[in-house]
């Protein structure tokens, strides 16, 4: 039987040393760790390194004109933050439909990335916003774009000993997120879409970033559709413009929540809704 042990890191230096050990497993909010163990994610056991005592990983602050969100910030804290509601509305949208109120009390933003599911609700808007991840290790700090973290369902590019310490997000006032689930609460998404736009005064899209969830092995940024939308007017019906392009870039699967066929139709619709909502926010 697999053997597990538990240790709470006293400071960041000790955490970095503990995470270097081959059998270390990061423990933070604790909303998925026990479930992963039940599913056999760590068959050889390991040592839980509890990082919740590290103040460096907490808090939402301004830093160089961006928002720095500590990895231990919970979904509840994001929802209660006036900074998130004002400057990152797409992330706020995602947090308000994230699991249920009880889970939001423990689930952390860092954990949502670390699990690396293609359906992670907080991840999709942050990719669209153009946010970055700060990764800490004994060797130092490195910064990557959010979308660079993922390489497969449940798989990421974190190196051994590396810890997600913060999300760094630029302001994205005209951004939005739309989710389709099988029910309104505790729903892993059938598909999600997020958009972040820049517009000129006549409503012409001058630049945009788009991301989709649950339609590919990883949370997906759809570059080709971004290029297609530049120069289009936000007040026109954009669904016919982006439909074929979206369909060509996604690789949805059949699973217990939906079919690939349905997701192919759903993703462009959700995306066009997110674009429209983001556009409305630009003029408000």
């Amino acid at each position: 039987m697999a053997d597990y042990s538990y240790i709470k890191a006293k400071n960041i230096k000790q955490a970095m040393e503990l995470l270097e050990q081959p059998n270390s497993i990061v423990s933070a909010g604790g909303s998925v760790l026990l479930l992963m163990i039940k599913e056999g994610a760590f068959p050889n056991g390991g040592q839980f390194v509890d990082i919740t005592g590290l103040p460096e990983l907490r808090g939402i602050t301004f830093e160089d004109g961006k928002l720095r969100i500590g990895a231990l910030v919970t979904v509840r804290e994001l929802l209660n933050s006036p900074l998130v509601a004002e400057y990152l509305p797409a992330l706020f949208d995602a947090c308000s439909v994230f699991a249920d109120p009880l889970t939001r009390n423990t689930a952390t933003i860092g954990g949502n990335f670390a699990v690396s599911s293609p359906s992670a609700d907080c991840v999709i808007p942050l990719i669209a916003i153009g946010a970055q991840l700060e990764l800490l290790s004994k060797a130092g700090k490195r910064i990557i774009a959010c979308e660079e973290l993922f390489c497969g369902p449940g798989q990421n590019t974190l190196k051994k000993g590396e810890l997600i310490s913060a999300v760094i997000a630029p302001f994205a006032l005209s951004s939005a997120f739309c989710k389709q689930g099988l029910r309104k609460a505790m729903a892993i998404s059938v598909a999600t879409a997020a958009a972040s736009l820049s517009l000129d005064c006549e409503g012409i899209i001058t630049s945009c970033r788009l991301a989709l969830g649950s339609v590919a092995p990883v949370p997906l940024r759809i570059y080709a559709t971004e290029k297609l939308l530049v120069g289009k007017n936000i007040n026109d019906d954009l669904l016919p413009v982006l439909r074929d392009s979206v369909k060509q870039q996604i690789k949805p699967i059949d699973d217990c929540r939906s079919t690939a066929e349905y997701r192919l139709e759903l993703a462009p619709v959700l995306l066009s809704r997110a674009v429209v909502l983001a556009g409305k926010r630009y003029f408000n």
Binding site: G30, S31, L34, L102, N105, M186
Partner: peptide, 24 residues
């Protein structure tokens, strides 16, 4: 972590105790 029948207050916040490691 789906049904909420194990909910308790942890430092004043309602949480689902079936998914929280006791050690923490």
């Amino acid at each position: 972590g789906s049904c909420g029948s194990c909910a308790l207050l942890l430092d004043g916040l309602a949480v689902k105790s079936c998914i929280i490691p006791a050690a923490s």
